[in-house]
Design a protein around this nucleic acid. Sequence first.
RNA 1: CGGGGAGUAGCGCAGCCUGGUAGCGCACCUGCCUUGGGAGCAGGGGGUCGCAAGUUCGAAUCUUGUCUCCCCGACCA
Length: 571
Amino acid sequence: MRYSQSFIPTVKETPADAEVISHRLMLRAGMIRKVAAGIYSYLPIGLRAIRKVENIVREEMNRAGANELLMPMVTPAELWEESGRWAQYGPELLRIKDRKDNSFCLGPTHEEVVTDIVRREVRSYRQMPLNLYQIQTKFRDEIRPRFGLMRGREFIMKDAYSFDVDEKGADASYEKMYQAYRRIFARCGLKFRAVEADTGSIGGNWSHEFMVLADSGEDAIVSCNGCDYAANVEKAESKVIESAEHAEPRPLEKVHTPAKKSIEEVSEFLQIHATSTVKMLIVKADEKPVAVLLRGDHELNEIKLKKIIGCDELEMATDEMIASATGATVGFLGPIDQKIRIIADTTVKGMKNFVCGANEVDYHLKNVNLERDFTVSKYADIRNVTHGDQCPRCSGGILEMWRGIEVGHVFKLGLKYSKALNATFLDADGKEQTVFMGCYGIGIGRTVASCIEQNHDENGIIFPLPIAPYHCIISAINPKDEIVSKAAEELYAELLKLGVEVLYDDRDERPGFKFKDADLIGIPLRIVVGAKNLVDGKVELKQRRGGETELLTITDAVSRIDGIVKEALGI
RNA sequence: CGGGGAGUAGCGCAGCCUGGUAGCGCACCUGCCUUGGGAGCAGGGGGUCGCAAGUUCGAAUCUUGUCUCCCCGACCA
């Protein structure tokens, strides 16, 4: 592609409303433009990067034996009513009506549609295992779209669905996808982790998320430094901390703690460590108040708690509810003399002589002890693990925390949708059975964005070659100079002949201007063709990453580039 | 949905308090000049001031309503 004919609207100034680096760079590099909140147009080089990821995904899915199809984006309400999700999904599902007043929605995911296909067409165990996938635009009316392609409302997703005759088959399909995903993200040049994850509203009972490691990531993940355990914080566990305290219970003591509400304030005021305090939170579980006890420095994990309580809705209680349920105010809550149900984190179980609120403004209690002073309804793991906790799977391993961007998710769905939609088959004995399902998503745009999060410098994007919009850019210094343009044209033609994707900057612009653009859009290889080096018959090859330069003849440059490209693509 | 902020030229912003000619930088167009890191000089084009109603002789500016966008939170494969 000749730059002079291309549409790559780069901008020097940083757009005001772009917060994260990938969003800024994608706007500046002319990859995307916003059309509405969370809705973007993909401009040519943005689209090329997206297509690169799509093709890697397609190749690996096909290699794993999956079949590509394409389902409609607009799907009828009836299917969603059948699965129960029409009522369950909430406002995130964008619902529309046609001229006959029939209800439809824009597909946020396609379990219903694909299961409908399978229940009609698959009748025998001989037709499975089956894996169907598509790469398609999805729509979710997110409450707060942000960070460009990272969390859009409209976004491109690869979604795959597996169908098996039994759980064992489903496990094998899951494992196949898991391995395919590892290959996909490795080929995209990403530093990532596969972590155990909560299944969320999609349902099912087991899942892994593929997380690209990035400080700007919206998810917190932990991994063990001693084994391969890794999990989303929402799900992560740690080894139960055994009581290290064997101290004799000391007499309860009430202390004046004026205006010291937070654990930090109280522990500083009393000159103790936060690990010697216990905090009590009140949550509203399906409209009922429940007290929660945690060691002072620990954080509540609402997802774990929700499962323990077994409620549908869980949120922090309002001040009014706290007052009526405990008779105390936030900052001075304590478990003694409480009437409501108390759930304590397992860590609390071994604690002795700790500090907690006195249920009286400006007072805390010292030397509080379990059983002697109050009782707990239930102990459970209800906290977020923290950096430095012990690994639950191996001995001696320590958990480390990271930030990650979720680019892929694999689920075992089990029978959830096949049962609801009655997708059955006849087994070898002629008996009717329900299909076992799995589903597997990859956010395509998010993968490109997270790749930029991991690969950039102050000058712009540094694309890994497999997903770069072009492999190589030729910057002709003063293309009006015939010697220069002749050499550049020759180079351009030779590279195209070899199948190298090359952007030829033939614009009549000053060198610095061209270099800035080349750096910004992140093309991995740059060849500078200038009169200065052509005197010796040389051109300059510079790699975007690392910045090494070499002076080569045109012929050598062509074969060198061809070699680098083929190696990077694994051809 | 709760809290905060912003809508003025393609982009980034000033002007608003104290009503009266709409302005700056970048980008764009023309010419000259320049060609190894977003050059220089000269000339030029471009804006229903988000939308609507109101106050006023007169509204970008004051009032009310409304829409959109951004940030924090809740929410979310």
